[in-house]
């Protein structure tokens, strides 16, 4: 390809900048469920694009060590080295986050209730006010709504632990209706 304009050169430069994320053979098995560019089109399966690397590293290690029990992931992560895990996480961290193509329309009343709950529960304190996440606190914005509700229920019901028990304590006693509002609010933040 021969760049013929400033715009083309700029685009070429952007492609170069994005090059490390452009391909990662190690992540190819992940694409079937998590999406080719890390945006999941599969219900209950999270998007990984734009996740701070520490978060997928923690989860992949919990799968490998059979501490977090998700059969599909236990098989994928069996005997994976730290280095492989770190490279897969870096690949997804470099991809741009985006909402899933099947995102339902925003319900203003439900999202408003979710926003009020999030403010009361200080979600933005660890996940940052724009919910882009940091370190092992994942990005929540533009995540699949069905996955968010699923994950919050798992924390509430002690079916899942994080690096510590913070999320279990925080979700204690939260109703299904409140979880639905939280998930709707977070899924519609881009």
């Amino acid at each position: 390809m021969r760049p013929t304009s400033a715009l083309a050169r700029l685009l070429g430069g952007l492609l170069l900048l994005a090059a490390p994320a452009a391909a990662e053979p190690l992540a190819e098995p992940c694409a079937a469920c998590h999406g080719a560019r890390g945006v999941s089109e599969t219900p209950i399966i999270p998007s990984l694009a734009g996740q701070p690397a520490d978060y997928p590293i923690l989860q992949m290690i919990l799968f490998r060590e059979q501490i977090r029990a998700v059969p599909a992931m236990a098989g994928q992560m069996q005997n994976r080295s730290d280095d492989v895990i770190a490279r897969i996480a870096a690949f997804y961290a470099a991809l741009p986050a985006a909402p899933p193509p099947d995102r339902a329309p925003r319900d203003a009343a439900l999202a408003g209730r979710g926003a009020a709950l999030s403010a009361r529960m200080n979600c933005g304190s660890c996940h940052l006010p724009d919910y882009s996440g940091r370190a092992n606190a994942p990005r929540l914005s533009a995540q699949r709504e069905d996955y968010l509700a699923h994950a919050l229920r798992e924390y509430r019901d002690n079916l899942r632990l994080g690096a510590d028990t913070q999320m279990n304590g925080l979700m204690y006693g939260v109703s299904d209706a409140d979880i639905a509002a939280l998930a709707h609010h977070l899924a519609h933040r881009d």
């Binding site: 590293i57 290690i61 200080n122 660890c126 925080l170």
Partner: peptide, 19 residues
């Protein structure tokens, strides 16, 4: 988190390194 006083900054446990 419910017990966090309004004047405290956004502190949180440091992430562990598992690699």
């Amino acid at each position: 988190d419910m017990q966090r006083p309004p004047n405290m900054p956004d502190l949180r446990p440091h992430p562990p390194r598992l690699t």
